[in-house]
Design a protein around this nucleic acid. Structure first.
Length: 847
RNA sequence: GGGAGUAUGGCGGAACUGGUAGACGCGCCGGAUUCAAAAUCCGGUCACUUCGGUGGUGUGGGUUCGAUUCCCUCUACUCCUACCA
């Protein structure tokens, strides 16, 4: 046996053993309970980063633990392989995107394998492979035929740097999610999926996702953004030569209708367009204001149009065109009630419009009520409001609605913020959209027998525009039905399309059909999905939609893809800057003991920055391959799991990694020590302490794994290790008892540090592989015949005493009161009463 | 502007439904071992203290025999979202 633990040899050895035994290759097995563990698959960017290490270490704990608990575990891995970086690399490195991608996959696969993950590599998929994307082309045709996919010309978010269209979800603070460029609005003809028709179901089903973080559900719910209100028809009084005869307005505050003093419509509203044709000034206003950010300046144009108030005879409201009204939300038109909406109030002040309060705050007198400077949006009673006077807000809303319906001037209306998913991207490295534009103007799907529509290979990549558009031999084709000339769609799918169903394909990664029903039915839904919170809306919402859409096109028959979701925190690291505000990498910075200051490697002063998410731009990344090389995969994994709760950010520190490495060696030393113990000479007087602690550890580690509190599991394992170390040194426990505890420890370590676990198991002559063993079983806690009781005075603990469990309250009282400390505290004060909690507390309450 | 969350030693973090605050780890201090160092092991480590105690979980208050835990107030930080009618 080795006296020092050699991680390089050991880790390689066990990785080979697991592979030889095909231990992680899973087969469908109806007689066994399945468990599907999945971490979000990586983009093959070049090499793995610490975020991946954390993500996959977390998932591996679940997978190995569930396997040892007897589940038939599927734990696959693949590559989210389409995307823009490959095109950028193609330009810079002058090699095709496919070559770059497959090379990265090879590197990263190797890196992941060196972590010792329990992955079934036979199920590996790459989304850029035609055998993968041909199925999604087929899905798209089904969606097209069922009306869930459609094409329309629409205002889209255009990223001028990436030269492509982005979905709303991909625009963050007006900037592209990948390029960071300011997004422009452009009219383009685009493919869409009808996510909006699933808005209600996507919202309602959130309630059923009990194993999802409340935070993610809330974010999705806000994103879907359901609001219930009324659509009110305002008839146009004049001019009477307009083709628009009325304006439909959406509101959630129909109760404030009597406070309405104007209407406003969007720059893109049909009426605005009609007016622009008639009036140069309107045209000019619209043109100028489409460029002005309404956040900087809210502008309106008072048109000559007047509309009729639905309930007040003879009341006419002016109609404005305003730059802050969104055409994409509601009906693109509002009525303004300045007293109860801050924006309307600002607008009314700017254009000198009437302000009429109609909601009276509680405890105010209607006769002398004066509005404050801000719009009042709180609770109250209706006044100045005709038939609504005296009502509460909710009642007034219903009342208005009924009246509108009876007058045929409006109806109840529900709007969702969620809009349809724009799919088209003007990129090369994506899945071609399987559609042909025939010379007669018809748009037809490619025949399924002609799938996949493969990407053409490309030699010299140009930096602007869509390369597919320029390859005529690919683009020009014929209609398979009529033989007419046709042009291929040159746009490709948004890459979120691929990631919306990859978890299904893992069930039958090599089959000819896209989905083998019985396999998908067996494995899905994913029992535990693990990934970053940054996908809370984008990927997770698209995937949920996609499963529902596939259900409705008869590909599967369940409603939600991910039963359990866990979102882990980021891996952060200290940042450093030089005095010119430039980033310094941690390797460049050292601490100057004399000057008590940080300096860089050229002896200039360095400043400590914030602790931030590891990123290349901030130079605070730590390369996992180096860490695995120096310390081993087990150390890296152990560090990733200790200290910080998985849901929170984890700060990478060198000392923390050192500590983890020490622990691995400490455990190994236990084995070395135990072998030097002579079994015959021992008195087994403390066996029970070790047995009890071992059992308690099993209980705690198990519970903490179940609850994703791996940091606590690790603390439990530390405690047991410390005790074992102490007892081995004291030589007061029998060797059998030590060995028994150590064996259990080896199994408990398996999900966290699997290589070390196997090595210990082998040394202790355990049967088979550690990973193939049953998770240790715990007994109920041994019941002790004594207990500790805290003696408190006025709730403050003064003494902790050991008592026989059979002691009565009276016994305990008399003993406690005789204690010097207690006696002194009481002195000549009077005892008011005793609070007695059996086996826990005796509290003496003094007057 | 709207929504959500967090706040505990020098640091990361424990504390089950209110019941011994600070488990476990890091760091630090002292010691052992060593020619020396690394590594390892042992002990200590919330603060103040007249060594009897006293105070202490962001602030201020409340409920309770008893509050890190429940309620209210304020403060700071983080995240999401944003003219959504």
């Amino acid at each position: 046996m080795l006296t020092r633990y050699h991680h390089k040899k050991v880790e390689k050895y066990w990785q080979e053993k697991w592979a030889e035994a095909k231990i992680f290759e899973t087969k469908k097995n109806i007689s066994k309970k399945k468990y599907y563990v999945l971490e979000m698959f990586p983009y093959p960017s070049g090499k793995i980063h610490m975020g991946h290490v954390r993500n996959y270490a977390l998932g591996d704990v679940v997978a190995r633990y569930k396997k040892m608990c007897g589940y038939n575990v599927m734990h696959p891995m693949g590559w989210d392989a389409f995307g823009l970086p490959a095109e950028n690399a193609a330009i810079v490195e002058k090699k095709p995107p496919s070559e770059w991608t497959y090379q990265n996959i090879k590197t990263m696969r190797h890196q992941l394998q060196s972590m010792g993950l329990s992955i079934d590599w036979t199920r590996e998929i790459a989304t850029c492979h035609p055998e993968y994307y041909k199925h999604e082309q087929s899905f798209f045709i089904d969606l097209l035929n069922s009306g869930l996919a459609y094409k329309k010309k629409s205002l889209v978010n255009w990223d001028p740097v990436d030269k492509t269209v982005l979905a709303n979800e991909q625009v963050i603070n007006g900037k592209g999610w990948r390029s960071g460029a300011d997004i422009e609005q452009k009219y383009l003809s685009q493919w869409f999926l009808k996510t909006s028709s699933y808005a209600e179901e996507l919202l309602a089903d959130l309630d059923k996702l009990n194993d999802w973080p409340a935070k993610v559900k809330l974010m999705q719910s806000n994103w879907i953004g359901k609001s219930t209100g009324a659509e009110i028809k305002f008839d146009i009084l004049n001019p009477d030569n307009l083709s628009n005869k009325s304006i439909n307005v959406f509101t959630t505050r129909q109760d404030t209708i009597f406070g309405a003093t104007f209407c406003a419509i969007s720059l893109n509203h049909p009426l605005a367009k009609e007016l622009a044709l008639m009036d140069k000034n309107v045209y000019k206003f619209i043109k100028e204001n489409s460029k002005i950010n309404p956040e900087k300046e809210k502008n309106g144009f008072r048109t000559a149009v007047l509309v009729k108030h639905p309930f007040i005879e003879n009341k006419k409201l002016p109609v404005f065109i305003a730059n802050f009204i969104l055409m994409e939300y509601g009906s693109g038109a509002i009525f303004g009630c300045p007293a109860h909406d801050q924006r309307d109030l600002d607008f009314a002040k700017k254009y000198k419009l009437d302000i009429l309060p109609v909601i009276l705050p509680k405890n105010e007198n209607p006769k002398n009520y004066k509005m404050g400077l801000k719009a009042y949006t709180g609770d109250g009673i209706l006044f100045n409001s005709n038939f609504l006077n005296g009502m509460e807000i909710e009642g007034a809303k219903k009342s208005v609605l009924n009246k509108l319906i009876s007058k045929n001037a409006g109806k109840e209306k529900i709007y969702y913020r969620l809009r349809d998913w724009g799919l088209s991207r003007q990129r090369y490295w994506g899945c071609p959209i399987p559609v042909l534009y025939r010379e007669d103007g018809e748009i037809i799907p490619v025949a399924k027998k002609d799938l996949p529509v493969k990407l053409p290979s490309i030699n010299n990549f140009v930096s602007s525009g869509n390369p597919l558009d320029q390859i005529n031999e690919w683009k020009l084709t014929k209609c398979p039905i009529t033989g007419m000339k046709a042009i291929r769609e040159t746009d490709t799918f948004d890459t979120f399309f691929e990631s919306s169903w990859y978890f299904l394909r893992y069930c039958n990664p090599r089959s000819k059909e896209a989905l083998v029903k019985e396999d998908v039915d067996y494995w899905l839904p994913v029992d535990q999905y693990i990934g970053g919170i940054e996908h809370a809306i984008l990927h997770l919402l698209y995937s949920r939609f996609f499963v529902k859409a596939l259900r409705d096109t008869n590909h599967l028959k369940f409603n939600e893809p991910f039963k359990g979701l866990f979102t882990q925190g980021m891996v952060t690291h200290q940042t450093y800057k030089n005095i010119n505000n430039g980033w310094l990498s941690p390797d460049e910075v050292s601490f100057d003991e004399n000057k008590k200051k940080y300096k860089d490697n050229k002896n200039r002063e360095a400043l400590i920055g914030k602790i931030e998410k590891m990123s290349k731009s901030k130079k605070n990344v730590v390369d996992p391959t180096k860490i695995i090389e120096i310390y081993g995969a087990d150390t890296a994994r152990w560090f990733m799991l200790s200290d910080s709760p998985p849901s929170r950010d984890l700060e990478w520190t060198d000392s923390g990694v050192g500590g983890s490495h020490k622990f691995i060696n400490k455990i190994w030393n236990l084995l070395v020590e135990i072998n030097s113990i002579d079994s015959s000479s021992l008195s087994p007087k403390e066996n029970y302490i070790l047995n009890e602690k071992t059992n308690e550890t099993i209980i705690n580690v198990t519970n903490n794994i179940d609850e994703f509190h791996y940091n606590k599991s690790i603390a439990n394992l530390h405690e047991l290790t410390n005790l074992l170390q102490k007892l081995i040194a004291k030589k007061t426990v029998s060797k059998d008892c030590l060995l028994n505890s150590l064996k259990k420890l080896a199994l408990l370590l398996q999900p966290f540090v699997p290589h070390l676990s196997e090595e210990i198991w082998k040394e202790l002559k355990g049967s088979g592989l550690a990973i193939s063993n049953q998770w240790p079983e715990s007994k109920n806690k041994l019941s002790k015949d004594y207990c500790y009781i805290a003696i408190q005075i006025n709730g403050k603990t003064k003494e902790v005493l050991k008592f026989d469990k059979k002691s009565t309250e009276e016994d305990i009282k008399s003993i406690a009161l005789e204690k010097q400390k207690v006696k002194k505290m009481i002195m000549n004060r009077k005892i008011k009463k005793f609070i007695f909690v059996p086996e826990k507390i005796l509290n003496v309450v003094l007057l």
